[in-house]
């Protein structure tokens, strides 16, 4: 049965059957098990994640497909946007800007697509204030390994109906299904936004501030981003200035390499490592860009590994979706650095 068959058959079904011809065409392009291995390509800005051995071009028998693109529906009064995942984050942002809204996907390289950012699941440097990428996804319609369209989540800003497949999809590197379109939560753009930097103790500063948007630290210097109403940003900036910070251009260029560490380890970093530098750490979050020889999180236990195997097999019994990619390997530092974009 193809996705188009599924859609026709769905006329008699009760649930919400996807009838968008562009998604149906994407599903038919992906095809069913007989169509063989398939990988999905976005902006290739994080192509290496979780796939140390995957060549940058489509390997031999793996067919490369592209997800459809375009903003389908933006409802400012709902604060949601329905977008096909081949759309770049920059295009989406441009679409939302005139309405004074944004999605909390920030700090990705030009060319990064919505689908790529969600499938990799790594958040930008504003995670401290805006929350992780995974919390922006409300509904996803994806193509399953059987070539069928599946709806995960729901079209409202709040939803606990059934098991949360959306959370499973974010960071799954396309091994559960191939995203077609997604409904994302939007947020008001702040009235005012700015960066402050200088030499300071980031932990003392964090304790004095109320929900800053970003707080970066290279062992000596601190970069602070404040968003909000003018008066509030001014008040918080005054606090930062008391700690020795001054207004500045923006965040530093992030060094290559990225790893996820216990944020408590940053606080306990010894003086030698602090002074040696070579990293930019996201305080209060635990992402470290660049060199990190401090403690790393304990690797997943055998139960978690077994769960991964079972889940992947359940969703993709023939192993045809993005073969060669392993979400469990995604925590390895990547070779190409993620450049911060302003």
């Amino acid at each position: 049965m193809t996705a188009t068959d599924q859609s026709r058959a769905g006329a008699a079904q009760l649930g919400r059957v996807v009838r968008d011809p562009i998604l149906l065409a994407f599903a038919d392009e992906v095809g069913a098990a007989e169509a063989g291995p398939v990988a999905v390509e976005g902006g290739r800005t994080q192509w290496e994640v979780g796939a140390p051995d995957v060549p940058t071009a489509g390997p031999g028998d793996v067919r490369l497909v592209r997800a459809p693109s375009g903003v389908v529906a933006f409802e400012p009064a709902e604060m949601t946007v329905l977008v096909r995942v081949g759309t770049t984050v920059a295009e989406l942002d441009a679409e939302l800007r005139p309405s004074g809204q944004q999605v909390a996907l920030e700090g990705f390289e030009p060319g990064a697509t919505v689908g790529g950012v969600l499938s990799v699941g790594r958040s930008g440097i504003t995670r401290l204030g805006h929350g992780p990428v995974r919390d922006t996804l409300l509904q996803a319609r994806y193509v399953s390994a059987e070539g069928l369209l599946v709806t995960a989540g729901g079209p409202t800003v709040k939803n606990v109906t059934g098991f949360d497949l959306c959370r499973l999809l974010v960071g799954s590197l396309g091994t559960i299904g191939l995203l077609g379109d997604v409904l994302l939560r939007t947020r008001p753009r702040p009235q005012h936004s700015g960066w402050w930097c200088g030499e300071a103790d980031p932990f003392a500063l964090q304790d004095q501030l109320y929900r800053p948007t970003s707080l970066l630290w290279d062992g000596t210097r601190v970069w602070l981003r404040l968003d909000g109403y003018h008066a509030d940003v001014a008040d918080q900036a005054a606090v930062a200035e008391r700690h020795g910070l001054a207004a500045c251009e923006g965040p530093p260029v992030l060094p290559a390499g990225r790893c996820s560490v216990d944020p408590g380890a940053l606080r306990r970093l010894d003086a030698a490592r602090r002074e040696a530098g070579g990293f930019v750490a996201e305080i209060g979050v635990g992402i470290v860009h660049g060199r990190w020889d401090g403690p790393r999180p304990t690797p997943p236990d055998h139960q978690v590994r077994a769960l991964h195997r079972r889940i992947r097999r359940a969703f993709d019994p023939t192993g045809r979706l993005n073969p060669g990619r392993d979400p469990l390997a995604a925590s390895q530092p990547i070779t190409a650095g993620q450049e911060a974009s302003r």
């Binding site: 499973l168 974010v170 216990d262 139960q303 991964h308 889940i311 925590s331």
Partner: peptide, 29 residues
């Protein structure tokens, strides 16, 4: 505690634990 009585940890103290977001799957299950 899983259905067979085995113990595991989903998610972690670091922001982006390796693998699927099993923590996210568990919440609301």
């Amino acid at each position: 505690v899983l259905g067979d009585g085995e113990l595991t940890m989903l998610g972690g103290l670091d922001p982006e634990p390796a693998g699927y977001d099993l923590r996210g799957v568990f919440v609301g299950s």
